[in-house]
Design a protein around this nucleic acid. Sequence first.
DNA 1: CTCCAGGTTCCGG
DNA 2: CCGGAACATGGA
Length: 312
Amino acid sequence: MGAPSLTDPMKEIPVPANGLDLEATLNCGQVFHWRRHGPGWVGALGEEAVYMEQRPGKLLVPRIHADRIARYLALDHPLPKIYASFPMDPAMIEAVAFAPGMRILRQPRWECLATFITSSMKQVAHIAQMSHALRIRFGKQIEWDGLPLFAYPTPARMAQASELELRTCGLGFRAKNLLRSAQMIACGEVDLEAIAQLDDSAAREQLCRLPGVGTKVANCVLLFGYERLESFPIDVWIERILRQLYFPRRRTVATGQLRAFTAEHFGEFGGYAQQYLFHHARMTWVRPKPKSKQGVGIRKKQAKSLAGRRGA
DNA sequence: CTCCAGGTTCCGG
DNA sequence: CCGGAACATGGA
């Protein structure tokens, strides 16, 4: 199997109207490495270089990878049934209407896990940046149409790297977590494939053994890598949304309360609901104008600033 | 120059 | 169980 190229036969996969929004699917914050290429997208699907282009009513992909891509994009997920399972909140309806056809991918496990280990306290753009740096530095080079692409580095390769090398990819304090997790997986201490056989609770428990993996990251990996569509990651965005929409005029809501609420309120496709809420909020968010430096908040900010500098 | 970002971990109530 | 703080880096 040679490297795919422009001359490879392409295949058209039929897609019903509103059955797929490729751009939203690739840009909604579940995956971070797909890039525009002309009217389509290029990237590494595992270790295969792939081009995907959405046209009215169909998807254009390399023939030899058609099945693989259809599975990756989860074209078999029953969106009408999924939408029907959502609560009929105005916010939920608006979020779905914003990007109908957005799908939860079936991502390669390690790749998904590793990128979300690096995601903590980072903007989406930064996550993509770190991911690309890691691919270029440690990943297998492949190519599509003369375009150099890079597979995500394997756990074994990553385990051989030094913490300092990872830091040069902009990882900061995440470098140690990613390195140790790669080592634990490379040596078999944690088996990502075996986790697929476990129930949600046991699977989450295994994932949380890895350094840098807590409840939120584990839920992302369960949702994007293990097809646990009820898994509901709660990050700062979702937390803000939930408080605002479902707990207004409530001074404090414990995270434990939020978790219980989401499981009950959003149901078996909660992960899908979460992704629609997240994407809509992120894309329509307007950053409030910075206020003048006068006011009551100043003391707190100064205290934090002073506490932050040690030995400078 | 300040603020904050798809969190996790450790620590004291 | 719950709230706080530290943890690195970079773009706005």
